[in-house]
C-alpha cells in the first residue's frame, strides 16, 4: 500500500503542505519498503481543477491514503470515487519525516 503526504519541498525534511490540490510536492511512501519518492505537482498553479488533477494523480500512482491539511469539495468527490482514504492533519507545521514517524507509531 502507498501513502501520499502533501509537502512544501522535495525531501523528507521539508514542511508538510496544508493544501492538497495546490500542494507543491507529493511525497509517496511505500508502506512495505518504507521508501519515499517525491513528485512535483505540476498542476499546483492551475486556476481551476487542481483538486481533480491531484486526485487523478493519486489514483495513477496507486496511492491508497492521502494526508493533507484540507481537501476541496471536488477533490473529495474524486478521491471518494477512487476509494482513496483522506486524512486531515490541521494546524500541523511538522516536517514530512515527523509525519512518517507518526505513521510508523
Amino acid at each position: 500500500m502507498k501513502t501520499a503526504i502533501t509537502s512544501k519541498g522535495n525531501g523528507t525534511s521539508a514542511q508538510f503542505d496544508l493544501r492538497f490540490g495546490r500542494a507543491a510536492w507529493f511525497c509517496v511512501i511505500d508502506d512495505e519498503t518504507g521508501n519515499t519518492e517525491f513528485f512535483e505537482n505540476d498542476c499546483a498553479n492551475l486556476s481551476g481543477g487542481a483538486g481533480i488533477k491531484a486526485s487523478e494523480k493519486m489514483a495513477e500512482l496507486g496511492v491508497a491514503k492521502v494526508i493533507s491539511g484540507d481537501f476541496g469539495p471536488k477533490a473529495k468527490e474524486y478521491l471518494n470515487k477512487f476509494n482513496i482514504q483522506m486524512v486531515i492533519l490541521s494546524n500541523d507545521s511538522s516536517s514530512i519525516e515527523t509525519i512518517i514517524s507518526k505513521l510508523k507509531g
Partner: peptide
C-alpha cells in the same frame, strides 16, 4: 480527521 473508504475493513485511525 479522516474518511473511511468502503473497501477498508480495519476501523482504526489511519495515523
Amino acid at each position: 480527521k479522516f474518511t473511511m473508504p468502503s473497501n477498508l475493513t480495519e476501523q482504526k485511525c489511519p495515523v
